[in-house]
Design a protein around this nucleic acid. Structure first.
Lengths: 405, 405
DNA sequence: ATCATTTAATTTGATCTTTGAAAAAAATAG
DNA sequence: CTATTTTTTTCAAAGATCAAATTAAATGAT
């Protein structure tokens, strides 16, 4: 097995090069050595050296040249390289309040299998979560005709305040206790690297690796699930504040002494756009029977019900204000609004986006691009898989040097 | 003279090492080689090699050992190294609406001279600014008994939207035109590197090099002058969004469709806490003669005038809300509130800080530290000098390799 | 067919850096 | 005066990167 120890001094430099080259290959999908050299600013000689290492380690593979021959008409044809999917099997799991969704992907990011595991209840003990994860992984593997032992890394997505650097759960709505060393417990139950993070960062990773933010080094992702989440990527890395719990977009205040939030404070954005906030308003306004179905409320708004429409309107205005604040602070080049169906209609609509644009500081430079990305319900699990994939890549490449000895 | 060309491949690595070591020395003030090795994770052998280069280049110097002998009782005594102040003379200039303040510092950051230059008027043409800078530098040098030609770098602070990476002024209240290549014009007038930035980033640099944020890699600085500014430091570097004009804290919205801001939008924080916002309120409220002196208004508030007090109260509440939002988004380890006298009393008071703390998402981890830093009126110029100092250091060290050839 | 041409990839030799280990230097304790 | 301790420097070994030269693999032209 590979060891973590530092082997030789210059090995450090080489590891860096390997990481660079591998990233370039993953980003490009398929790319010839000469183009890697151009992109990474590394000499062709070194690219040859590094790719040959990666090839013999089985992490990448050559593509048998097809009849494309783009560009050049003469000369030795370039042979493209790509990540070798079979090199690793990666799992991503997202635990929501109803179920655990698992996705299996290969090292290229191709989906190998999906699986959904019902939850006994929305809140569990740490031991139950560990057990659940193990059974979900087993189920997913069985369904895909793979074996659990083939998995080389697992990403886990949880709502709440997660410290991803320590695989530590400050708090999660799925857990019945605070401050859990969940990462350690999982590693004890299954000897593969685990990677945990909160929902929004998950989606940020997914956008970066598979989605709208490929080749973008600074961007922001906003997601809406139960609450409102934000993922910040600066310089290619997820930014996670000091205590590992930054980007609490949902709890930025949009109104002085405003509506009561479930966090106990007043005026949080979430207290205006969250599910419970919308339903609360609908109920207060004197409807005969208590409203508890958001889609029904939404249907009424669409049908023209003034009261229902007003509820969604205010949510949209507040959301626009919060988002504009984030843009004013970060001035990112790209903002991605990720979400599922309904979110789009009432929060990601053009009227809201227009409002955002008119609330951003104006300069003689184009406004940041706001892109809307409609994912399927596997978005979260895919993000978890993306995190694990990144982690496994880094680990494998680091260990290449040590193993060579 | 030194050239910018890349010399050898591995030179890159060496430059990195030099930069690291030099930073360690500057940060520590005085430090022995063995401790540099410990801190930078570089071997003692390499530290010796690098420091000997820096020594012979005159950038650092050995300190004649004094009778301290901290710690160890036997063995060869460590000789401390420090930055050699005489290596460079650096100037920092801040242009406000009334005057241009110049500070001269040596390479250690020690103040060598100060100088204040009256402005003909608050708004000038680009040519007038260039001229003004030249005359201010000359004046400062004359007063300090130095020659302008000794200066190796100049930092310039301006209010407005500045793109520091290109030394480009999108807009500044001091300039009568937009989109000015001020950096190029200055370089044409005087052949030294110029470094420009907006006020808040300036102060952030000053805090990082000379102030409260030494050895802190992630922090936020809030400053109040005419408007409200923010500087963000992530991973030791100033964060400047995509268009080079992020961190527009003053124009984050704290009220939906709120008070009119001079930027033309509604609800900006600045429209509640800026000088003009406070005076505007005071005047609207039916006082006999128009109020145009903020300190008079403030005195009335302190004396118990309910109306005046209410004005400052609201400003404080809005400020707290905006600051809490920033903290919720960034989760920084340190927030520094930098400013001059009056700001403290009504915005940086304990009641406002308490309000901030109670609006931040609560976790089982200590809240970010909020430190208040009262600078003299040289704060801005010092920040400009800090920027220049950093730039000159980097440049000098980069050129070491080239010059050696 | 064969050869010149073109482009991609690999090999080779030189240059540099970093580092561990050994040596030297500079002090104190006994 | 010698042994010990700690810091600094020297030295040789181990790699890494790159420019230049070479090889490989195609197409066009004659």
């Amino acid at each position: 097995m590979a060891s973590i120890q530092r082997t030789s001094p210059a090995n450090d430099q080489r590891e860096n090069g390997r990481q660079h080259v591998f990233d370039a290959i993953r980003q490009a999908g398929r790319i010839a050595r000469i183009d890697i050299a151009r992109e990474t600013q590394v000499s062709p000689a070194t690219v040859t050296a590094i790719t040959s290492e990666l090839l013999s380690a089985g992490l990448i593979e050559e593509i048998t040249p097809e009849g494309d021959r783009t560009g050049a008409k003469r000369g030795r044809p370039r042979v493209a390289l790509k990540v070798r999917g079979a090199a690793h099997l990666i799992a991503g799991i997202k635990i929501s309040d109803r179920s655990a969704t698992v996705i299996l992907v290969d090292f290229e990011g191709q989906t190998v299998g999906e699986y959904d595991h019902e939850l006994p209840g929305p809140v569990m003990s740490a031991e139950e979560i560990v057990d659940l994860v193990m059974r979900a992984l087993a189920g997913a593997c069985a369904a895909a005709g793979r074996h659990v032992r083939e998995i080389s890394g697992v990403g886990l997505g949880l709502a709440g305040l997660i410290d991803a650097t320590r695989n530590f759960v400050h708090w999660s709505p799925s857990l019945d206790q605070r401050n859990v060393e969940l990462g350690r417990m999982l590693s004890d139950a299954m000897p593969v690297p685990f990677y945990m993070d909160n929902d929004a960062n998950l989606v940020a990773k997914a956008e970066q690796l598979f989605g709208e933010a490929r080749n973008v080094s600074d961007f922001i992702v906003i997601t809406i699930e139960q609450g409102v989440g934000m993922g910040i990527v600066i310089d290619g890395k997820i930014y996670r504040g000091e205590r590992g719990c930054g980007a609490e977009f949902g709890h930025t205040k949009v109104q002085l002494d405003g509506a009561l939030c479930r966090c106990g404070q007043r005026g949080c954005l979430e207290a205006y756009v969250g599910d419970y906030a919308l339903l609360r308003e609908a109920n207060i306004r004197g409807s005969a029977q208590p409203e508890d179905d958001l889609s029904a409320l939404y249907a009424r708004a669409k049908a023209g019900d003034a009261m229902a429409r007003s509820i969604f309107d205010r949510a949209g205005r507040m959301f626009a204000m919060g988002l504009a604040n984030v843009i004013n602070i970060f001035d990112p080049s790209l903002v991605i609004l990720s979400g599922e169906q309904m979110t789009f209609d009432f929060l990601y609509g053009s009227d809201v986006l227009d409002r955002v644009k008119s609330s951003v500081v104006q300069v003689d430079a184009p406004l940041p691009e706001i892109r809307v990305h409609k994912w399927g319900d596997l978005m979260w699990a895919k993000g978890a898989a993306a995190c694990a994939m990144e982690g496994v890549s880094e680990l494998t490449i680091r260990n290449l040097g040590a193993d060579a000895a």
